[in-house]
Structures are given as structure tokens and as C-alpha cells.
């Protein structure tokens, strides 16, 4: 038998970050043709809230100690950005991630390449960051024309938004990776966790008015920690220690969720 010399395959293994970036690239390939509808729902939706609550409802609210002495518009502008970002983060980490395992199965396609489960999760987190940042930027710029910001601290709000969004996204991704049914639990989470969270997180009114018995709901809510940070950078009045505390809480959530998601992805894809 004549021996044919087989050419070496062109495939190779890249490092963790470069591989993860390819996941971003793959999502971008899709996003660049669908950005309008996406940006509308994730960036402009909270603006509608801002118009209705900040300008409409806000015209009935007089600046007081409850609003930190500022107009209601300035009071809700940062928290509404966070609200929009958290909704986007949670919904994009639920069904779309489950689909990657179950319906579209694109994670199953990815794992047949040199890609590792951790790379996929890292790539998803990076992609999520970019989308949240974009949505936050669009909101911030347009809200400027409403007169929603008091100072340049507004620029930091979108970064707080990314962090808060990710802190909510990674635990949901982890949950998606261990979901084998049709994902009805995501609807429940939206209704029973995310929406109630907006009522206890100081989004629309200060948490001081929340009864002490249920104040713990505030304390565990990532949205509240994010909102405190966001108001801190725009309206001031946040000390260093609480600032670091909120930051640490969100980071801990993000990292724990990321670790659980990585484990979930690994078990689901390599079995």
C-alpha cells in the first residue's frame, strides 16, 4: 500500500482570551444585521420609562430629602438605566442560553472545536458587557437631552450598569445550563424575582420607606447595590466603605455566577 503523506490540519488551539473573543465575534456576526430591534428594546425601552416616570410622574414630585434634594428626573435617571440593563441581562441569559444547549445547540457545535466550556462562558460575558455598555451609552446620551444628568458622573453610570447586569446575568446563565425542560422557570424568575426586585431596590423611591421586616429583600438585591453605586456617582453622598461594599457584592455575584456557569456548561457539554 502506498503511503499518502497526510497534511497537517490548519486548526490550532488559541489562548483563553483570544478564544473567548471568537464567541463575541460570532455573536457580532448576527447582531450587526439585527441591531435595530435589539437596541430598541434594550436601550430605548428604559428611555420610555424615563420620559413617563421622570418627566411625567416626576412633574408631580417636589425635590425633597426623599429624592436627595434633587428633581425626581435626576433621581430616577441612574436607577432606570440599571433597571433596563438588568432586564436585558436576565432575558438574554435565559432562553437564548438554554437554546444554545437545547434548540439551536450552538454550544454543542462550539465544543466540537478547540473551544473549552470556560471560553464559551467568558465569551458570553464579554459579549453581554458590550451589549449592556452600548445600551447604557445610548440611554445616557439621549437622557442628557432630557436634562437627566447633573454632572459628568453620568458617564460612570453605564459602567455600573454593566457590572450590575453581569452580576444578574451569570447566575441566570448558570441556571440555564442546568435547565433541561422548556425553561418555564425563566418566566417565573422574571415575574417573581426580577420585577419585585425593582420595587425593593430603590429604583422608583428611596428604600427608607420600605418596612424593616422586608428590608432584607433590598439588601440581597443586586439592583439595589447597583442603584446605590449609580446614585453615588451622579448625586454624590456615598462614602468609600459603602461604595466598596456594593462593588464587592456585585463582583462576588458575578464571579460566583461565572464559576457556576462554567461548571454547568462543562457538565452539560462534555458528558
Amino acid at each position: 500500500m502506498s503511503t499518502v503523506v497526510q497534511q497537517r490540519s490548519t486548526g490550532r488551539v488559541l489562548g483563553l482570551w483570544r478564544t473567548a473573543w471568537l464567541v463575541v465575534e460570532a455573536h457580532w456576526m448576527w447582531y450587526r444585521r439585527h441591531w435595530h430591534s435589539n437596541l430598541f428594546s434594550s436601550g430605548l425601552h428604559p428611555l420610555l420609562f424615563l420620559a413617563a416616570m421622570g418627566l411625567g410622574f416626576g412633574s408631580q414630585v417636589r425635590p425633597s430629602a426623599a429624592t436627595g434634594g434633587v428633581d425626581y428626573l435626576n433621581f430616577v435617571a441612574p436607577s432606570l438605566l440599571l433597571l433596563g440593563v438588568v432586564f436585558t441581562a436576565v432575558s438574554e441569559s435565559s432562553y437564548p442560553v438554554l437554546s444554545g444547549f437545547k434548540w439551536q445547540q450552538h454550544y454543542i457545535a462550539m465544543i466540537a472545536t478547540p473551544m473549552r466550556p470556560g471560553c464559551i462562558v467568558l465569551g458570553l460575558v464579554q459579549w453581554m458587557s458590550l451589549r449592556l455598555l452600548l445600551a447604557g451609552a445610548v440611554y445616557t446620551v439621549i437622557a442628557t437631552f432630557f436634562g437627566a444628568w447633573l454632572n459628568a458622573g453620568a458617564i460612570f453610570v453605564m459602567f455600573v450598569g454593566v457590572l450590575t447586569g453581569l452580576a444578574c446575568a451569570t447566575p441566570v446563565m448558570a441556571l440555564a445550563s442546568v435547565t433541561y425542560d422548556e425553561g418555564n422557570r425563566f418566566t417565573l424568575i422574571m415575574r417573581l424575582v426580577v420585577i419585585p426586585m425593582t420595587l425593593f431596590a430603590g429604583t422608583f423611591f428611596p428604600v427608607d420607606s420600605i418596612p424593616l421586616g422586608v428590608r432584607w429583600l433590598t439588601w440581597i438585591s443586586p439592583l439595589w447595590h447597583g442603584t446605590e453605586l449609580a446614585r453615588g456617582v451622579t448625586l454624590g453622598g456615598l462614602d468609600v466603605l459603602p461604595f466598596l461594599g456594593h462593588l464587592a457584592y456585585l463582583l462576588a455575584l458575578l464571579l460566583t455566577g461565572g464559576a457556576l456557569a462554567t461548571r454547568g456548561f462543562a457538565r452539560r457539554l462534555v458528558n
Partner: peptide
């Protein structure tokens, strides 16, 4: 695993195109 996967091609039983 990754080094091997880099050099092989896989057509799964079930299509998983995007």
C-alpha cells in the same frame, strides 16, 4: 481534548448549524 479537536472534523448526527 482541545489539541485533538483542533485537528479533527466532526459531523454530528444532529445538525447544529446557527
Amino acid at each position: 481534548g482541545p489539541r485533538i479537536r483542533a485537528r479533527i472534523g466532526v459531523c454530528p448526527q444532529q445538525d447544529n448549524l446557527d
